[in-house]
């Protein structure tokens, strides 16, 4: 019941924030102290993780290639799939980060009667991931309107495009729907695909449920539970947070504190979870190395330092013993002066 546990954990978090924010004085904990704490954990944790990764040596060039590597001139080199220069690596990495090309290659294997095994392209994961990640990104950018004062014009343009359908008031955003749908799709994928379900753990389900709850509380706050949700008052607090002088002007509804608390848990949990793939993708040796192992020697960083030792040097070191043992030497011992 790994997914049930995730739901229980998120419900517990919601209850903590809901009941906790009703206690006098506690809004400052949920609205000011915890966001700062979560942000410090997020920044510190992410930097720590990346430094730890950067300290790990890469003993072999283990880039994964999906095309013809650079070879003789008349063999066509697949520059994107087997990059041999830094520029090609950057191009490949950029497309990986922006379009998730490795998910595009996802295949599904099935055993049929015979027995035959078949492999077929399965693009669902790629599609769901695109919906989810781009919605998430758009929502993060849109939230900048609460933190920047005055709000730059480009955020208004971003909101315009995101709310292009102009459905309802306040406008529904495409990314709001996208995030909820994306969470549901990725979650159902883990439940429905048997082998993915078999390998799914609590730390796969929990972030999905948590992000789903963040999205739902945000939507509830914007459209439905409007009691004491005065955006001017909220912006006063959020701008106060980033100008390091936070104030809570008037009473803010509990749904706001629930939303903020869930976000705090999410960003504090980030560095210790699989969500760190946002930084990990840049540090994957299978992606960020050049495929030039035939042209450039990759040296294992933990190899002991062994200096070249020529035969002439060897003989210099052991000549006396060699002569004593009647081993022929190329250069005779120089007779010492006393003899």
């Amino acid at each position: 019941m790994k997914y049930a546990f995730s739901f229980l954990a998120v419900i517990a978090l919601i209850l903590i924030a809901w009941l906790g924010s009703q206690i006098p004085g506690m809004p400052y904990l949920f609205g000011v102290a915890l966001p700062y704490l979560a942000m410090i954990i997020f920044l510190g944790g992410c930097v720590y993780k990346v430094v730890q990764w950067a300290k790990s040596p890469v003993p072999f060039p283990i880039q994964t290639t999906c095309g013809q590597g650079k070879s003789l001139d008349f063999i066509k080199h697949n520059r994107l799939e087997a990059p041999s220069t830094n520029g090609e690596v950057v191009a490949r990495m950029f497309l990986e980060v922006v379009t998730f090309r490795s998910l595009f290659r996802n295949t599904k294997s099935e055993i049929h009667e015979g027995p035959y095994i078949t492999y077929e392209s399965s693009k669902w994961l790629w599609c769901f991931a695109l919906i989810f990640h781009y919605s998430f990104f758009s929502i993060v950018v849109r939230h900048l309107r609460l933190f920047l004062d005055p709000v730059p014009a480009w955020i208004g343009w971003w909101e315009f495009v995101d709310g292009l359908f102009e459905v309802g008031a306040p406008t529904w955003y495409i990314s709001d729907v996208g995030l909820v749908v994306g969470c549901l799709l990725l979650f159902s994928r883990r439940l429905i695909t048997r082998h993915v379900r078999y390998i799914s753990l609590v730390n796969d389900y929990f972030p999905l449920v948590l992000i789903f709850a963040v999205a739902v509380t945000g939507i509830l706050m914007r459209f439905f539970l409007r009691a004491d949700i005065d955006i001017v008052n909220i912006k006063q607090l959020t701008v106060g947070l980033v100008t390091l002088s936070p104030v809570i002007g008037a009473k803010i509804g509990a749904i706001f504190y629930i939303h903020v608390f869930l976000v705090c848990v999410l960003i504090a949990y980030f560095p210790f979870s699989k969500l760190m793939h946002f930084a990990g993708v840049f540090l994957s040796p299978t992606r960020n190395l050049r495929n030039d192992s035939r042209a450039v020697r990759h040296i294992n960083p933990w190899n002991p330092k062994i200096l070249p030792h020529s035969y002439a040097g060897y003989e210099d070191e052991f000549r006396e013993f060699m002569v004593n043992a009647d081993i022929p030497v190329e250069k005779e011992l120089t007779p010492s002066k006393d003899e």
Partner: peptide, 20 residues
């Protein structure tokens, strides 16, 4: 990464705040 995450702090530090 750190500059991007803390972007609102720098932005607000270098812009004139509007009154609530």
């Amino acid at each position: 990464f750190v500059l991007l995450v803390t972007f609102p702090i720098w932005f607000n530090a270098f812009s004139t705040a509007s009154t609530v």
